[in-house]
């Protein structure tokens, strides 16, 4: 706890010019800061520190704005393909089971982990084709998961401009470890979950983060350019990424 006081004292001492400026300035009281300067409601009573800072350097930025994208689903697909992932578009949910089965077969998957809240219909064809399905209920151990070849998950949202899948690890997406250890990840995302870019997606994820859920952004399979800058797809994360865009 000594460290705490020392660091805060040094930081406050370093900011005497800011304090002086604020005292000089008529602008001192909190002006609010876009949509988000107010401290989190849970904060105000718990910290007993200074009030929320005045917005002395307001960012000239409008948060949460969509970008001009003509067809988000198509752009998303283009960008995900750019990352060397395999993408298929399903017109309706009814096509999902056959596509999942085909992807598992093309990855040569013999076993497949499933989040406890996944729609069981999605994997019916794959199971019928002989892939051994392992529900994460009760939770699979990391040693077990390490021997399972694939995983099927839903998604929370997607970003078109960057070709990013967002997981917030609710029951249909599963614990973080589930989409990490198996070497093949099949991810099903609805077209209406895809937004234009980072700002719109961030706004959607805010509720998940406030609820304490972890978030993972996946933009293509894991990759490295660490040796002579030559790109290698697949290091520690899943080396094969398959995406089904529905609708």
């Amino acid at each position: 706890m000594m460290g705490r006081q020392e660091v805060l004292d040094k930081v406050r001492a370093a900011l005497v010019d800011v304090v002086a400026q604020e005292q000089d300035s008529a602008l001192a009281p909190a002006l609010g800061r876009g949509r988000s300067i107010a401290p989190h409601p849970a904060m105000t009573e718990s910290i007993g520190a200074s009030q929320a800072p005045a917005q002395d350097t307001p960012p000239q930025w409008e948060y949460g704005q969509p970008t001009a994208v003509h067809d988000v689903a198509e752009l998303f697909i283009d960008r995900v393909v750019d990352y060397k992932a395999t993408v298929e578009r399903a017109a309706t949910e009814a096509e999902i089971p056959a596509l999942v089965a085909r992807m598992l077969a093309s990855a040569g998957a013999l076993t497949c982990a499933l989040p406890a809240g996944l729609d069981a219909a999605w994997i019916a064809d794959g199971a019928a084709a002989g892939v051994q399905m392992r529900w994460d209920d009760p939770p699979l151990s990391k040693e077990e998961l390490n021997t399972i070849s694939a995983v099927v998950t839903a998604a929370s949202s997607g970003m078109a401009e960057t070709g990013t899948i967002v997981l917030d690890h609710r029951a249909d997406q599963g614990r973080r470890i589930l989409s990490l250890l198996p070497d093949t990840h099949v991810c099903v995302i609805r077209a209406d979950q895809i937004v234009t870019d980072v700002p719109e997606a961030m706004a959607r994820q805010e509720a998940s983060l406030r609820a304490g859920l972890p978030i993972t952004w996946i933009s293509g399979p894991s990759a490295t350019s660490d040796i002579e800058l030559s790109r290698v797809e697949g290091v520690h994360g899943p080396r094969n990424l398959y995406v089904i865009v529905v609708g």
């Binding site: 690890h169 983060l209 972890p214 996946i218 350019s225």
Partner: peptide, 21 residues
């Protein structure tokens, strides 16, 4: 940094998530 539209993985976590990690 890497000149990519997005890096392959971004992780966010908020303290402890019961049952996950």
């Amino acid at each position: 940094s890497t000149g990519e539209r997005m890096n392959p993985y971004t992780s966010m976590w908020t303290g402890v998530t019961p049952g996950d990690g």
